[in-house]
Amino acid sequence: MQYVVPAVIILLVVGIRLWRMRGARRLRLETLWILPALYAVFVIGMFATHPPTPIGFAAAAAALVIGGGIGWYRGTMMRISVDPETHALSQQASPLAVLLLVGLLLVRRVAMEEMGGTGLNAQIAIDVLMAFALGLIATTRIEMLLRARRLLREARASGLSQTFR
């Protein structure tokens, strides 16, 4: 039963997420920074109230970098499009991006079960996971912002060149 309930919850969440991804959603560049900023404040607050050990800081820094790399890759999987007439941006998450997150959740679960008997500090594990999530969220949004700006610039440039022909 301890495996069935989480599996059902994960399948339900993934199913809902995949169903909601069928259509494109509006992408607002001016709001992409909000989630990473709020999460960064949360992580900094947690580190300030419960400072990690030097080993914890090193592990969290490594997790931040690894999360950043995976987040960048996840950001590249997001489909971003520009309406040629209005230059409105839209995004559509790739099903592969959702499967990547599910895979990460499964890896996390297995790792936490494996660590259970080793006596490793639970606070270090929490710090590592928080840093990993921060890297993932922030770099996903940064990659999307940079690519969306480039696509918007290209759309505006091609619109101007068509106007002046």
Rank of each mutant, 00 (worst) to 15 (best):
V41S: 03
M115G: 05
M77R: 06
A93E: 00
R141M: 14
A24I: 09
A61H: 10
T86P: 14
E154W: 11
G103P: 13
A24Y: 08
L145N: 13
A59V: 10
L160S: 03
T31Y: 07
G67H: 09
L100S: 11
P84D: 00
M46A: 08
E113C: 01
Q91S: 10
R28P: 02
P51V: 12
A37I: 11
V110W: 12
M78F: 12
L64R: 01
A7S: 15
E114I: 14
V65A: 13
L120Y: 11
S81R: 03
I126H: 04
E143M: 08
R22M: 02
L99A: 11
A157P: 05
T139S: 07
W19M: 12
L105V: 02
A58L: 15
S94R: 03
S161R: 15
R153V: 06
T31R: 10
I34S: 11
L120V: 10
A61F: 09
G56I: 07
L11T: 08
A155W: 00
A48Q: 04
L120I: 11
Q162Y: 11
G15Y: 03
L105T: 02
A111T: 15
G68T: 13
G56T: 06
T163Q: 15
L96R: 11
I16E: 13
G71L: 12
L100Q: 11
I142F: 15
R17S: 15
L104P: 10
G71P: 13
A93I: 05
R26I: 00
G15V: 00
N121T: 08
E114F: 13
T31H: 08
R141K: 15
R22Y: 00
Q123M: 03
L18T: 14
A24F: 07
L11M: 12
F132D: 09
I55P: 02
F42A: 12
M21C: 12
A125L: 08
M130N: 15
T118N: 14
A37R: 10
I10S: 14
W33N: 08
